[in-house]
Structures are given as structure tokens and as C-alpha cells.
């Protein structure tokens, strides 16, 4: 058993703390932040070529809804037809959209900024990038 000097003990503790904070700290902090937001009916949406993740949202009529939309690659758009919501989503930016779901029904969400397609004139890619918002009556 090697004799441990006080400086070595302190170093071991510091290293342990460093590892804990840097490797696990971020995940813990993020979980805490998101848990708080979930209480207010907040949806995190990631737009990437060529899907929204997640793409389906169900809320009750009259609720205050917040979308926090970001893009993982290029510039996309976030448009909710029927609620007159149009936003441009730049990569890395988190756009916060808050509104009250006062009308019931099924509303289409789609990408309002052309974001490419696998082959020109294929009709796929950007043109198929959609989601859906369901507002249900109580």
C-alpha cells in the first residue's frame, strides 16, 4: 500500500469532481432544465433534412402551447397553418413560439423555407417535410 500524501488525496478528490462535473453535469443540468419546461407544455422540436422530430403534437383546446424549434443542419421554416405561425429556423438557433390553442381541429405543420430535395423535381425532400398539430376538445 503506497503512502498517500495530503496533496495526493486532494488531487484525487479534485480529479473525481472534475470527471463528475464535466462528464455527467451537462446531462443532469439539461434534464433539470427540460423538466421545468415540461410543466408548461413545452415541446422541443428539431428540424432536419427532411423531417421534424417529433412530428406529432397533441394538446387540449385552450392550453398555452410553446414550441422551441431548432435546426440541425440548414435553414428551415416552421409554419402552423390555421394559427398563422411562420418562423424561420436557423441552424443552432432555438426559436420560441408561444400561442394559445383556442381552435380545435387538426392543423398541418410544414417547412416554409425551401431546404433542398434528394433529386431535382422529385417532389420529395422539402416538399414532404410535414408534421401535425391536433387540438382536441375536452
Amino acid at each position: 500500500m503506497v503512502k498517500l500524501r495530503p496533496s495526493e488525496l486532494i488531487a484525487i478528490v479534485l480529479l473525481g469532481l472534475t470527471v463528475l462535473v464535466t462528464l455527467f453535469g451537462p446531462f443532469y443540468f439539461d434534464n433539470v432544465t427540460r423538466a421545468e419546461k415540461e410543466k408548461e407544455h413545452v415541446f422541443y422540436v428539431t428540424a432536419r433534412q427532411w423531417v421534424f422530430e417529433p412530428a406529432e403534437f397533441v394538446v387540449k383546446k385552450g392550453e398555452k402551447v410553446t414550441f422551441i424549434v431548432s435546426s440541425a443542419d440548414v435553414v428551415h421554416g416552421f409554419m402552423v397553418t390555421g394559427y398563422n405561425i411562420v418562423a424561420v429556423i436557423n441552424p443552432g438557433e432555438f426559436v420560441k413560439i408561444t400561442f394559445t390553442a383556442d381552435r380545435a381541429g387538426v392543423f398541418e405543420i410544414r417547412c416554409s423555407v425551401y431546404c433542398g430535395e434528394p433529386l431535382l423535381n422529385s417532389g420529395a425532400g422539402h416538399w414532404l417535410m410535414k408534421g401535425v398539430l391536433k387540438v382536441v376538445e375536452l
Binding site: V75, M79, V88, V113
Partner: peptide
């Protein structure tokens, strides 16, 4: 130092 953005909005 001048700039113009082309965002392909609908």
C-alpha cells in the same frame, strides 16, 4: 462589410 441573405421562404 456589406451583406445580403437569401432565405428561400415560401
Amino acid at each position: 462589410d456589406i451583406r445580403a441573405d437569401l432565405i428561400l421562404e415560401e
